[in-house]
Design a protein around this nucleic acid. Structure first.
Length: 254
DNA sequence: CTCAGTGTTCAGTG
DNA sequence: TCACTGAACACTGA
């Protein structure tokens, strides 16, 4: 195993320590909650990964596929790819690399990942844990903050990022600036169902944007040039909530 | 050249 | 305690 000498991505852990933890260990399971993923080894500590905005796990096959199908020529050459932070070799000959271009990702070691931060502080995962309607309503109305910010809060819902939050609000027809404690039961229920549906669909198509439904706001939100419109020709507006750009459709969101 | 962006996380304020 | 803001992190592409 090889590690980049990157004290940001290796969050408070010496790369040598990570190497020692992995070397000779057996991966019993790979687990995920929200945007965090960890290997359950046959011994502690266990490695925990977060990819930030620009990270990925790559194998030689996937990397080659990516390179071949990339529309523009990538300077991203051979193997291991640029921005490799950790390069793992398995005894069956398999290889796995974690890349992280912007260095917003993290590699950590945990004795008991599920019982320690950051995993222990995450809220429900829309795929693993989607609350009942009643529970969801209570969670939501139990706080008083702007809805968009709460959706982004990993302590509320794990794994919901900026575009998913906007997508869910658009599909549920709710204004991102609303306060959580102002939602009626039926609004909370629409939100809950869309939260599950959007995440499920994105995962089912392997996050392949071309396979997201044409009706999704996602396809239309990027060129924020003031002329942006949805597939139904609705005007898209932009504002900043919680420091993040929020795309929304006044004609469809109350 | 400048700026925003698939994300946290922390310090500081109210 | 909670809610919110701004900054920091590094790189790319428009």
């Amino acid at each position: 195993m090889q590690c980049d000498d990157d004290d940001i991505v290796f969050d408070g852990v010496a790369p040598a320590h990570v190497r020692r933890a992995l070397k000779g260990a057996t991966v019993r399971a790979v687990r995920r909650r929200g945007k965090h993923l960890w290997f359950e080894l046959d011994r502690a500590p266990h490695p925990l990964f977060h990819f930030g905005m620009t990270g990925a796990f790559l194998t030689p096959g996937i990397a080659a596929l990516r390179l071949a199908s990339s529309p523009k020529r990538v300077r991203d050459d051979g193997w291991p790819p640029r921005f490799t932070k950790i390069h793992i070799r398995f005894d069956d000959g398999g290889e796995l690399v974690m890349t992280n271009k912007r260095r917003l990702g993290r590699i950590r070691l945990r004795e008991d990942p599920e019982r320690e931060p950051p995993i222990s502080e995450l809220g429900f995962d829309p795929l693993l844990d989607l609350p009942t309607p009643r529970r969801f309503f209570d969670l939501l109305t139990g706080r008083s903050a702007v809805l968009k910010s709460v959706l982004l809060d990993q302590g509320f819902a794990a794994g919901v990022g900026n575009w998913i939050a906007d997508e869910v609000l658009y599909q549920a027809g709710i204004d991102p600036r609303r306060r959580t404690d102002s939602l009626a039961r039926d609004e909370a229920e629409r939100l809950r169902r869309k939260l599950g549906a959007v995440v499920r669909h994105a995962v089912r198509v392997d996050a392949d944007k071309d396979r997201f439904p044409k009706s999704w706001l996602f396809h239309h939100r990027w060129g924020k040039d003031g002329a942006a419109r949805t597939a139904k020709r609705e005007k898209i507006r932009f504002l900043t909530v919680g420091g993040r750009t929020t795309a929304w459709v006044p004609a469809a969101q109350r």
